[in-house]
Amino acid sequence: MDYALAVATALGALSIYLLLPRGRGSLVKTGALVGVLTLGVAILYLVRWVGHHEAVGQGAGLGIFFYLFAIIAVISATAVICHPRPLYSALYFVLLTLAMAGLFILLLAQFMAIVLIIIYAGAILVTYIFVIMLASPGGNVAVADYDRVTPDPLLAVLVSFVLLGTVLQLMFIGQPRTFMAARPVRAVAVGVIRGHQSLSDKPALRIGGMELLGVNLYSQYALPLELAGILLTISLVGAVMIARKNVPVAGVLGTGQMPVE
């Protein structure tokens, strides 16, 4: 077991537990503090880990932009699930999407980045915001009860973080225990701040282009693509049917009443 990682996971769990809305006596500030602590520990851990790999001669640093986007993504995701006002959650989700798009560009998936922004930030999130507006509870309450109080936050956080901890341990198990063993400081700094990737590598650039994606989709995944189109149509029809007014309460669709014996 990697204790540093375990400590980071536990701190993360504590932070989320504190941040989740809990009505009166909110502990948001404490939670935020613990969150910052978590991020610090995580970054320290990463630096150590990257240093080890750099020492072995394996480029592990991703450059400052990865870490920046990753931190934005994690913080905004936390805000989405912890903010008591749904509208703010939605807006934080837009931020998350933007950060993800940045990460996609780092991964040479420029097309996917654009698609993500157009579809998620542009279409899906706008729909969510519409629905949040439509389905706002009546009265003058700024925040509804069910948004203010979270039931059983401990159970949810505990179970989820046990899962996360297990997965992370699995991933990083067998890594060096010795802290900062033989670290080439300059290499670490270069790895963490500048990274080893370059957007100008020509074969890599071709990967990010739409051309290869199109060829892949329309040759290898032609049938699934058609099925996905059908699925979209079906869900469209389904959504229309579900959301229309005067849906019969029980019985046969169409007549809207139970057959009389």
Binding site: L155, V159, V162, L163, T166, V167, Q169
Partner: peptide, 20 residues
């Protein structure tokens, strides 16, 4: 729904831990 979801997560965690 919540408790069913927690049950699912716990199940997955137990399976992974067990395998590990």
């Amino acid at each position: 729904l919540r408790y069913y979801g927690i049950g699912m997560i716990a199940g997955i965690a137990v399976v992974i831990l067990g395998v590990l």
